[in-house]
Design a protein around this nucleic acid. Sequence first.
DNA 1: CTCATAAGTATACGATCGTATACATCAGGG
DNA 2: CCCTGATGTATACGATCGTATACTTATGAG
Lengths: 205, 205
Amino acid sequence: MPRVAKPKPAKTPVEPRRRDAAATRQAILNSARKAFAAHGYDGAGLREIAANAGVTAMLVNRYFGSKEGLFEAAIDDAMSDASVIRKGMPDLDSLGAYLAAGVLETTRPDVTPLDGSLMMVRSGSTTNPRVIEIGRKQIEKMHLKTLAAALGGDNAAERAALILSLIAGVQVMRQMIHLTPLAKTSPATLQKLLAPVIQQLADGA
Amino acid sequence: MPRVAKPKPAKTPVEPRRRDAAATRQAILNSARKAFAAHGYDGAGLREIAANAGVTAMLVNRYFGSKEGLFEAAIDDAMSDASVIRKGMPDLDSLGAYLAAGVLETTRPDVTPLDGSLMMVRSGSTTNPRVIEIGRKQIEKMHLKTLAAALGGDNAAERAALILSLIAGVQVMRQMIHLTPLAKTSPATLQKLLAPVIQQLADGA
DNA sequence: CTCATAAGTATACGATCGTATACATCAGGG
DNA sequence: CCCTGATGTATACGATCGTATACTTATGAG
């Protein structure tokens, strides 16, 4: 078996779009977010991304210059809207419950969301150091900074980083490794265990 | 730029080994552990693994059947010795400090250890579902089971899984994403923040 | 010493990757 | 209406991947 199995008939026939640069660009971005979040940077192929957007691979490079450029645009797009952090975070004393619910919701074992941090976690083992740099900067600018500011107190950046680490770890173990206790246990039970841990990091020493 | 840069002159010229099946097999395993931990399953190439073991790629397949077989043998080898969990865990009330020190030690931003869980975290976004299955079973058998047994109490498996998630997340953010507060802050400071969080999960609700 | 066999190598195949070059076609302003 | 530029496609190239087939070479038993 060379490489990997490829039963890829494309979920919907992708009816032809009237020529519209903006719409095409966004369609490519959506497809790229899905692919990068599902398979990581190295695992997602330009031809697959293009096909699911209803275009050819070369058009992707015409819009975004290269795969690196596409990744940068896609992670920027992802970080700007559908993230647990940033969209109206609650008071500090309910942050643990809020973030725990958020991570459990966005890492349901069956679906693959368009989340930016998930994209980055999955892309983390790429061989391309520039891709790591791109993602790290986005996470630090959008998630780390926001969260650290919301926390305050001593070592706010480090505590925020540990919260992000815990969230990333749950993403890894729940969605990528499919660790049984995280994949099978009810979200309510997990929430009760996870929330106070995040809250402890939020409150500080 | 097709694929990825390849400045790979091999660190040491790898002097020829006297023909010895057992030694060759172990050399391949060591090289594989390093490569899988550094680049993940998809990112590590058989030719690179073979070269760093001083053999050719085909010999790897002769010893282990396939890349999948090599991964299975490598992760089994890794889990059997150099892991934070399993090697003489201390009393329950000092578990947080012990595991925090362990994860910070094995994820120093500069080195790439031969750790099995790191191999699996980095390999988590492979497109090969059998590889995920192999790694998941190893983690559950070697780490999760051991840790849950040491914890005891309600939801021991889930609490153990969350501890493993936190450890995996720190690995991701510290070694793969290179998140600044985790990469630059002193291990002592991080330890002081991380230990009580793990301890809280160890103690239970 | 010899020689069967284990240990290791050389070469090639088919597939997939990112992307460069050249070509086709639609859409709107004149 | 028409034609120019924007939008999109076809094809191909070089590289790398995992691995199958065929070959070479060293080693230890007799």
